[in-house]
């Protein structure tokens, strides 16, 4: 019996120490985690590193006629630019996986998007982009996105798709969604 008591005490002490070590390890892991969620579910002001989104210093917004839709905004490569209804009031609600399907038209911090022919420069602006960590180009205060399904320039396959919780529309040069056709 006399030998059992010290053994029990050692076991209890070992268990307490183990529990303390576990708690400490968990806290350290949480503090050092590179995935600590920042605003909008990303890695904070640096953006979402897992998305690997580029943010060039020069962004030009242009126009192009897309069959069936008329004149729409495009990026410098002729890819149609879209707006997302839930982004009303100058917010970026498409983040994470949504930003894969709808890559934001990102621009480097401190840079200003340029208006091409037919684009109203006064409508252009920027908002902080939680995806790239840079800024997202806006038009009429709506963030602009491309669509992953537009693998070629001059198409607007994302027009009027209801995806990621809302409808998507190509943006017209007058700052309104194109709703006339699909």
């Amino acid at each position: 019996m006399s030998g059992a008591v010290p053994a029990l005490a050692v076991a209890v002490v070992a268990a307490v120490v183990a529990a303390l070590v576990a708690v400490l390890v968990a806290l350290l892991a949480a503090c050092g985690s590179p995935k600590a969620a920042g605003p909008n579910g990303t890695n904070g002001p640096a953006g979402d590193a897992l998305l690997q989104l580029p943010a060039p210093t020069q962004v030009v917004v242009q126009t192009r006629i897309v069959p069936g839709l008329g004149t729409v905004l495009t990026d410098s490569t002729g890819h149609t630019l879209y707006m997302f209804s839930p982004d009303a009031r100058s917010r970026v609600s498409c983040t994470g996986s949504c930003a894969g399907t709808w890559p934001p038209l990102a621009v480097a911090k401190g840079s200003t998007p340029t208006a091409g022919s037919g684009v109203e420069a006064s409508q252009l602006g920027t908002l902080a982009d939680p995806n790239s960590g840079a800024d997202i180009t806006t038009y009429a205060r709506y963030p602009l996105y491309r669509y992953a399904g537009d693998v070629s320039a001059g198409t607007a396959n994302g027009q009027h798709l209801f995806l990621n919780g809302g409808p998507w529309y190509a943006m017209s040069p007058d700052g309104t969604p194109v709703v006339a056709a699909e």
Binding site: A14, A15, V17, A18, A19, L20, V21, A22, V23, L24, V25, A26, A29
Partner: peptide, 10 residues
């Protein structure tokens, strides 16, 4: 990770 610490400690 935390559970791993518990395992190692015990």
């Amino acid at each position: 990770f935390g559970a791993g610490g518990l395992v190692i400690g015990a």
